[in-house]
Design a protein around this nucleic acid. Structure first.
Lengths: 237, 237
DNA sequence: GATAGTTTCAAACGGGCGTTTGAATCGTGC
DNA sequence: GCACGATTCAAACGCCCGTTTGAAACTATC
């Protein structure tokens, strides 16, 4: 119903009072982080954004579409940045295959930049994303897989060249592990923090965090193939 | 309100028609997996369990307490099994410190056994757990951190002995990464599967899965400390 | 300054939610 | 076989949900 095609120029607002759509997106990002998608009502959301209750359905169509808009706003640019960075590295390397660490950099740096960009969502968004990964709702699952398809495919090719001892199948699994560790780290899920009694001092220093994560992931990716004897997975144990 | 102390003997039922509490727990495990905690209503839950709507509040007190009961039923034994297995390994090793792989085995094997035990929840439960990790609800976060505290503490000590080159702080972070990868893998979140186009053929073979995960994690844990130059984390990049 | 399109608004819609209640039913010990 | 606590049941409670509606307010164009 929102007539987005015949739109007129936006009425030059200052940074504090943006237009309705942005105010809704910001409030949604923050509240979905705090309470989750299902537990956030449009009434509290629109109240926090200072807009009318009907505004969400007018501008986004439905609560679900609002959620997708929250994700797209940050995810599209981030994944594009990842691809651009990877291609830049590949150009700079001129035919030679990149190191594992270099490819990881191309994945982590755009995520780090997003996490740092406080005025544009920052950590809030990454937590929403972390929750979305684990959400069973079909509309979220399909949306995410579409959003990531191209980026993952490009990086898989790059890793395959950098890690010739891995089969494509083995690499797929290791990327799964990488995404798991990365998502938990960036999302900074409170349960894990509590479980592990992570010291809060470091929470603000994402650069240090990724300098811990990168060697871990690189070593895991480079690891030799598994040996059944190492893990004594006998059914009777 | 449920008078659990003066309880009489349960009326010897067969396996198909268990008592009300178990039927509720089973249905909850399955539905929380499928739709999540917030999106699952007590009406559909009690209908699926074939019990009266009021039964949940009678036997568990509230929907939240039911959720905790769902987690405790599987989590308590699994974490205890992990601790027991670790201590058995330590006894068998005499004074010597365990290998990293051995300690990982003590973490992974009980989880694998749980995942295999189809008749007792199996993968359903691990998916509920995976979602719970990312849930921001305070009652879930506090509950999980209490459930895991002892287990994590014991394993951290074991890893510290096995990996003397790591500081306690560094190890805390690496365990965070381990838990992230482990949780994603066991939970088998559909979004990640879709993203990575994992071949469905392997889904049922958890043993093979952990034989892929273990070398990855072990290599990551053993990795040398990070070097800032490896990841080009210059703010201007 | 009338007009047409866009956006906001208050109010209401129908429905589902978690929980409570009080009576009916069940199972057992006296 | 009666009494009593444990459990089940149907019904209702009060509340909040996502969405829709139609009128009011706004803004740019002629």
């Amino acid at each position: 119903m929102p007539a987005q095609r015949t739109a007129r120029r936006p009425p030059a607002t200052d940074a504090l009072s943006q237009d309705t759509k942005s105010r809704i997106l910001d409030a949604a990002e923050s509240l979905f982080t705090e309470h989750g998608f299902e537990a956030t009502s449009l009434r509290q959301l629109t109240a926090a954004a200072g807009v009318n209750l009907a505004a969400v359905n007018y501008h986004f169509g439905s609560k679900e579409e609002l959620f997708q808009a929250v994700l797209t706003r940050r995810l599209d640019p981030m994944n594009q940045e990842r691809i651009d960075l990877l291609e830049r590295y590949e150009r700079e390397a001129g035919g030679k295959s990149l190191t594992c660490e270099k490819i990881l950099s191309a994945m982590l740096i755009p995520a780090l930049r997003l996490s740092r960009d406080e005025k544009l969502g920052g950590k809030n968004f990454l937590r929403v994303l972390g929750r979305a990964y684990a959400d069973p709702a079909p509309f979220i699952r399909h949306f995410l897989s579409e959003q990531y398809a191209e980026m993952i495919s490009r990086f898989k090719d790059a890793f395959l060249k950098a890690l010739p001892h891995l089969t494509r199948e083995e690499l797929t699994w290791r990327l799964h592990f990488v995404m798991g560790a990365l998502s938990y780290t960036l999302a900074g899920t409170d349960s894990l923090k509590l479980m592990l009694q992570v010291i809060a001092v470091e929470e603000d220093n994402d650069e240090l965090l990724l300098q811990r994560l990168a060697p871990f992931l690189a070593a895991g990716l480079k690891a030799p193939l598994g040996d059944a004897k190492k893990l004594e997975l006998v059914s009777g144990y």
